[in-house]
Design a protein around this nucleic acid. Sequence first.
DNA 1: TTCGATTTGTTCGTATGTATT
DNA 2: TAATACATACGAACAAATCGA
Lengths: 253, 253
Amino acid sequence: MIKRRTASPLDVSGSQPLYRQVEQRILRCLAEGEWKSGEQIPTEGQLAERFGVAVFTIRAGIAELVAANILARKQGKGTFVARHSRLRQRHQFSHIHDRDGRQVLPDRRLVSFGRSAATRLERDELALPATGRAVVCRLAMLTVLGGEIVSTLDIVLPGALFQRLTAAVIRAATENLYAAYQDTCGVNVIRIEEHVHAALASGREARALRVRAGAPVLRVERIASTYDGVPVEVRTRVLDAARYHYRTVEGGI
Amino acid sequence: MIKRRTASPLDVSGSQPLYRQVEQRILRCLAEGEWKSGEQIPTEGQLAERFGVAVFTIRAGIAELVAANILARKQGKGTFVARHSRLRQRHQFSHIHDRDGRQVLPDRRLVSFGRSAATRLERDELALPATGRAVVCRLAMLTVLGGEIVSTLDIVLPGALFQRLTAAVIRAATENLYAAYQDTCGVNVIRIEEHVHAALASGREARALRVRAGAPVLRVERIASTYDGVPVEVRTRVLDAARYHYRTVEGGI
DNA sequence: TTCGATTTGTTCGTATGTATT
DNA sequence: TAATACATACGAACAAATCGA
């Protein structure tokens, strides 16, 4: 992990506005681990001095990262690297709703935890080298709410990044799993892409979800990424379509 | 339609920051139809004078509306009410992808067009009065790509807002339907909410989509809203799950 | 084609208010 | 209370894009 202070001057020649360069520079500091989740980053004045620009310019760069939920500003305190455990954001990425339109926030139950070689597809999805050893961490879970099983949840993680992840850590995590990724492995998810499929329950899924085989299910496949778009998690969730659906909102004020 | 210039002074007492009041004021001008889609709104200087604040404050208010895709700024020209026909935004709300992960951008084929009384559910969804007459406009369409039927598409619109909408207008619309709403009826969609369900094809759906009855389908129900969150469209799309899926992206830079 | 007026884009300096410690 | 840090607000300057004379 490179810890060098990025003190090289910004490019004034006009290729990109200074505030965008500030944004990129901050993003690089985050990617390199100079500032970790929950930590306070330098104040506007300090960053202005470090990058050799005005406070106004620092502020403009930070603004975009705040809008993207990567940084959080607090009046009177400072600017912090956003954490997934913040209540407001705890279910930032949760899109499952029940028939009454209420958001479903179930608990997790870990069924199995292990490490093994990545399949070709997993190497592809996680951008792992096509040759050589590539170990992935596999989690099989169920989500439950009020004694009822809501979904199966299978997660695949690149082993190299998640060496410190254990079954105990998962079981102890009461919040968003991504908060555990931050705290235990220093991995910061900032982007997710989801593919929502309709399918018929396989035998295994039917038994897990307590539906008959061939019943309609929603299969949600997610790829989560960190800074620079590096994929760090692939998860598949399967839900009983009769009880749950997927909801999104776009636009608005 | 009220055309009064909102020239009453902003509230300096501090209940809300000036730039937020500017934002609200601009939004109100848009909702009241003072500035229509595609039109140029007054320059920063003019707005600053009209609202009695500095240009900086106007800019801060506009910035949020630009981020929400409601206004668009062009250097050297001015600030404009965003149009849905802009190529970049033409499929802003399109989430359908094929098995290869490519976004599907089909054409429309109008099957039927008519007006009739709203059902109780439609009154609910479109926020129409629970009593008295309430006419809705109904569109039944198919979307096709390369001779293949992609989805059924059923749209319900509040008749009062869409009095000038005709089958000819729909058939003539080559772009996003929301551009036609803007041009013909002055209705500006700025927010959508979608509910994605997995289901089994009904007989009618199976015939339309050329699949067998009981095949898994995706059913996407959308409620589109304008300024102030007023719902202006309910649309239902049904797709063959074997060929298409629903994709979203969240977060990132 | 050149030139100038207009409008937004970027950057800076400064001042005051408010939350936190 | 005092110091610190972000939030809001204003004024100013120059750059870049646009458009019409």
